[in-house]
Nucleic acid binder design. Sequence first.
DNA 1: GTCTATATTTAGATAGAC
DNA 2: GTCTATCTAAATATAGAC
Lengths: 215, 215
Amino acid sequence: MDGTVPKESPPAAQGRILDAAENIFAEQGFAGAGMKAIALRANVAQGLLHYHFSNKDGLYAAVIERRSGIINRDRISLLDQVNLEKQDPVPDIMEALLKPPLGPAGGGRAYARILAGLCVGDARDSALVEEHYDPTAKRFIAALQIARPHASARSISWGYNLAVGALIATVARDGRSDRLIGAVEKIEDLEKTVARTVAYAAGGLDAIIAADAPP
Amino acid sequence: MDGTVPKESPPAAQGRILDAAENIFAEQGFAGAGMKAIALRANVAQGLLHYHFSNKDGLYAAVIERRSGIINRDRISLLDQVNLEKQDPVPDIMEALLKPPLGPAGGGRAYARILAGLCVGDARDSALVEEHYDPTAKRFIAALQIARPHASARSISWGYNLAVGALIATVARDGRSDRLIGAVEKIEDLEKTVARTVAYAAGGLDAIIAADAPP
DNA sequence: GTCTATATTTAGATAGAC
DNA sequence: GTCTATCTAAATATAGAC
């Protein structure tokens, strides 16, 4: 003991700020989120946000960096477990891509909505996607190309992009499907949601490959 | 001649404002767009925006209303031409759904990005979707249910939602597919883009129906 | 590291002349 | 209907005490 006393453990102010920012950016988007509201939800003074993250852009980038790191690690870990020699590895590849962001470690609905915003966003968002997601994306595209060796590179990359689109629709439009059919029942469980999105992405990929094939 | 002189014909200030707002809302999102910037691009005084549309919410709603009216009219018109008795009408239904927003009358990339934002947006966006898009959505879901009578209502409605997700990915992520494979060629033509998205949505729908079927 | 208080800029909205 | 000028509120960011 040297007399120094650590104030708070891991989820110190810095972590609370990131959590609060993740939620508010998800709800309001980048421009709509306010530093004041984030500080309020994190129970810290507004000035502290600037001390730790310089400015709003820095805070936004920190949120993306933290969560994308977790998601990419999980994605790659699952992808490495896929046996590319098996009969049809595409569903396994899609599950490795789609399950991490849908699961609890993926930040739940909040971060998934940020991810959706990233994909339809402006130049700042594009730069963040390129930095934090492109490297992993290339890994998945390479795996899909191995699984479908006769497909064109363009079909494969669109199959990847449209799989992410299915992910976005799954997260962002949750609730609308039930509303449109007047359903009143409970929330689906995660397994079923993942299974449906995986089936959709795998089926869609093969459909565009078939449509692209020379007649 | 009575001395009165009409200032400008159809594309008067009101139309220019809507055009400018559509573009800036597309680029920046609702919160990011500024009334000042919209007025500047429309070449009108800022006060005029409030004279015509009361406030920012009113202007946003007017942009959605104008474009969704055109898209819904085109969608229903194409859907009514689909022969539901033919062997497999699903691709035709999907084309009726996806072609209008991708085409020139759909507002081009600008409005498509607004549409994407609507789908991942907050409460205000949900209300606008419910008002302007739900009625047409129900028509398409009904048509899909007729084309796939043995599929569950939930599979059908998710097939619809995920088709919209494919639309969003097609528009919003344009450019990323080529970047990821290092392509440097020209822009694809509209026909090919529509055909791929239609094939994806149709193939994905049947995949989730198959996955949902009792074993 | 954290807080309080404040500076600076920018936003949406309004008033009134033309 | 349109413009100029202005009001008021809110945002981000900073300064300095603790």
